[in-house]
Design a protein around this nucleic acid. Sequence first.
DNA 1: CCAATAGTCAAGTTTAAACTTAACTATGAT
DNA 2: ATCATAGTTAAGTTTAAACTTGACTATTGG
Lengths: 113, 113
Amino acid sequence: MAKLETNINAQPEIEALFFALGEKQRRHIFFSLMDGEKTVKQLAEPLNITLTGLGQHIKILEAAKLVRTEKVGRERICSVNPEGLATMENFAKLHRNLWSSRFSALRKIVEAH
Amino acid sequence: MAKLETNINAQPEIEALFFALGEKQRRHIFFSLMDGEKTVKQLAEPLNITLTGLGQHIKILEAAKLVRTEKVGRERICSVNPEGLATMENFAKLHRNLWSSRFSALRKIVEAH
DNA sequence: CCAATAGTCAAGTTTAAACTTAACTATGAT
DNA sequence: ATCATAGTTAAGTTTAAACTTGACTATTGG
């Protein structure tokens, strides 16, 4: 029987997702967008950060598919991309199932002795 | 109508979870434990890191309820704590639902015009 | 057309957090 | 009893990544 590939972590999709949400400011940005779309300017103001700094966070959130953006005139409109959260939910589900099936397999072995 | 509290992020539970998995080495440690429990030594070796360094990661993973540990003799046995993944799954589910309900509410407003 | 606004890019600085060292404790093996 | 192994603690170093600056482009409003 082939060894199950648990290191889903190797997937760049998952890497990008956890890296993006691993930072406090980016979590703030993401949650702020949950309330509705905003421009880079609108996101930057309450965080006390430069437009450049905010733009860098947005790129990382976009790469993680947590945020989508669209240039409208001279503004960039940012909104939630549901794909990231879906990926996260699937990831958590899959690994909880993997873990519990292994755990119960282990219990059987222990109980047999 | 009171403003819905979307900043679940303020919850230290969620903060700890994303902070913990935001780091590559800690993701490796976590996935490694998915295959079965290991000592601090066993975890440190393949990562080319000191025992001290590994111990620091383990504390962070424990705080996030992703890992549990138990001191057995002179060794510390580390294993997956399913609570962290459960929290993550609930988080992703909740926010996907929140987002999609807001999104469809927005669609209705737009369509009405 | 001109000034203000919104954002971007390349390059550098700053800071948080990852990591190490060295000294120590506790357990296990011979 | 003593030596090796496993881990811990406090303190310091290193590094990755967050952040800024200054110069630039593109859009918009007067």
